[in-house]
Design a protein around this nucleic acid. Structure first.
Ligand SMILES: [Mn+2]
Ligand SMILES: [Mn+2]
Ligand SMILES: [Zn+2]
Ligand SMILES: [Zn+2]
Lengths: 139, 139
DNA sequence: GTATTACGTTGTAATCATTACAGATTAGGT
DNA sequence: ACCTAATCTGTAATGATTACAACGTAATAC
């Protein structure tokens, strides 16, 4: 079945399985647009009226602690969440607010033990105007 | 004199000169620790009791619009401000909260017209544990 | 099978950074 | 020394996130 996929992911990471955790995980997997906590909450609330926003935050918290989701602070005003994800960078369009993935080839931002700091996360944040907005198609 | 330095910087950019703007600019120049708006406010308030926090935000706003300061969103919870500055990257220590400059040689994160997006800002954000905290000296 | 216990969820209230706004003040040109 | 537009100030509103306490649930102990 389908729910088995996310059950497995949680189990493999030693995270207790709950319906709320499964739903958030599934939403992030199926909606790769770097949603906010509120985006997730509002959407899931429709089929799950008892869902609490606190729970969404709690779930996102634990998922990020276990490295299943990445927290993006690129927008400055709210956190955005990215499912699992191979290493890639992000571009924030200051016109439409969308965050798009950027894949930079041959750019190793990782692996630099600069001055003895222990690096655990690497983020490349670009800002500007996205292609669609440049063409006048933007949101 | 000394205040002339910042007066000149503002004039060159066509920004009207006010005591508040001079003070914020001087503070950022002399305190290169990526302070928050509140850090700036609390410090300047001592010698300038009538200073309003709104003014600090307004000044930081205009300075960033003219490219005189860079706004960092690395911490996620609050903006940090960086004076003028040549191109460099930032490392956030998740233990002590300090943001330290990282200078990566030969790494050009700039100049990539990826997929037609117009890139206006480039930020390299690293997170982890800083050297001092690793040694147990951390704040 | 029931009591115990730990963990998760929920709703509400608090927090904290930032923004909105309206009235007082000031910089810069006349 | 005026005038006017721009700036500054204090307070109130906003919005995201966190704190907290009551409640639900599911595993474990007896
Ligand atoms: Mn992404
Ligand atoms: Mn810096
Ligand atoms: Zn856009
Ligand atoms: Zn540190």
């Amino acid at each position: 079945m389908d729910t088995g996929k996310y059950t497995g992911i949680l189990r493999e990471n030693g995270i207790k399985v709950t319906p709320q955790r499964l739903e958030v995980l599934r939403f992030l997997d199926e909606n790769r647009v770097h949603p906010t906590a509120d985006d997730i909450y509002r959407t899931l609330k429709k089929d799950n009226p008892s869902l609490s926003k606190t729970t969404v935050y709690n779930v996102l918290d634990i998922l990020s602690k276990y490295g299943l989701v990445e927290v993006l602070t690129i927008s400055g005003t709210e956190s955005r969440y990215d499912y699992g994800s191979t290493r890639h960078q992000h571009f924030l369009c200051t016109s439409c607010g969308r965050i798009v993935d950027i894949h930079i080839k041959g750019l190793c931002m990782d692996c630099m033990p600069e001055k003895g700091h222990k690096v655990e996360e690497v983020h490349g944040y670009f800002k500007g105007t996205c292609r669609d907005c440049l063409k006048g198609i933007g949101a």
